[in-house]
């Protein structure tokens, strides 16, 4: 079977800088890495490959600036077989609608030119956008069934690349677990609980360095410029700002734990939170 993970290169730091003029994230010079949630997606794809065996292969797809290619090489180091890069100035500023559309067009191309994709795995969300929209959005374009917040792949049966099969997954709900079965091809978005990602292997790293990664712009994907990037996005960020952080709270002092506890409970009553 052919498993494809969608990954994103995101800032590896929590100390984000905001451009005072544009109000957007300053990405220049910032250390970047694979979005941490996508590591679970890559790991799950590799584990399914190890489980299913045969000629199963794992491809990785990203959309991003030229340097995002590093994330694909890193994914190969972590067990993926191939990487594909959607890249071009025209994609800049894409919201989740335009991003999922571009990724969908790339998946169509991969299915046609490489081999039909049976399963798309996304991370739960990115650590910079936090939306979680791409997995379900891709499913809408692909017209495939999808499940998000997957904590376990219970079973997967493939009838060969592009030949169908089924997957049984566990979805983490607020009140328990929903177990769902889908026909392949399908899309899942996975959460942290699903696995513990491996560290790259030396052989993987070398393969990652050597891999030839195709780079596709809008023309290569046959996408109208009306539907890409900022111009093709239904939504825009009209402003961004740092939230005011709470500081300067009150320190509860006391000579014993009991005294501290009493003063704290008094305060909490004053604040009417208990």
């Amino acid at each position: 079977m052919h498993i494809l993970t969608c990954i994103k290169q995101t800032p590896a730091t929590d100390n984000v800088q905001i451009d005072a003029v544009t109000g957007t994230l300053k990405r220049e010079g910032m250390a970047a890495a694979i979005n941490p949630f996508d590591e679970y997606a890559i790991e799950e794809a590799v584990r399914i490959k190890e489980r299913v065996g045969g000629d199963t292969k794992v491809s990785c797809l990203t959309m991003g600036p030229p340097q995002a290619e590093e994330a694909l090489r890193d994914a190969i180091a972590r067990g993926a077989d191939a990487g594909f890069h959607v890249c071009g100035r025209e994609f800049a500023g894409a919201d989740t609608w335009a991003t999922s559309y571009a990724l969908f067009k790339a998946i169509e191309k991969i299915s046609k030119e490489v081999s039909p994709v049976d399963l798309v795995i996304c991370g739960k969300q990115t650590n910079d956008g936090d939306t979680g929209h791409i997995g379900p959005g891709l499913a809408a374009w692909l017209t495939w069934p999808n499940v998000a917040y997957v904590r376990k792949v219970e079973d997967i049966k493939s009838n060969g690349t592009g030949q169908g099969g089924t997957i049984v997954v566990h979805r983490l709900m607020e009140d328990g677990i929903d177990v769902l079965e889908m026909d392949l091809p399908a899309v899942i978005a996975v959460i942290k609980e699903i696995n513990e990602p491996r560290v790259p292997s030396l052989k993987g790293k070398m393969a990652g360095k050597k891999a030839v990664i195709p780079r596709w712009d809008a023309a290569a994907l046959n996408i109208s410029l009306d539907h890409v990037g900022l111009k093709g996005s239904p939504t825009i960020v009209s402003k961004s700002f740092r939230p005011s952080m709470k500081t300067g709270g009150t320190r509860i002092e006391g000579n014993s734990p009991e005294e501290k506890a009493r003063k704290l409970v008094e305060k909490l009553k004053e604040l009417k939170v208990i």
Partner: peptide, 16 residues
Amino acid sequence: DEQQSIIDISREIGEK
């Protein structure tokens, strides 16, 4: 490249 990769991988194993 190989030597740098040994360092990177060992560090990641160490850290994580």
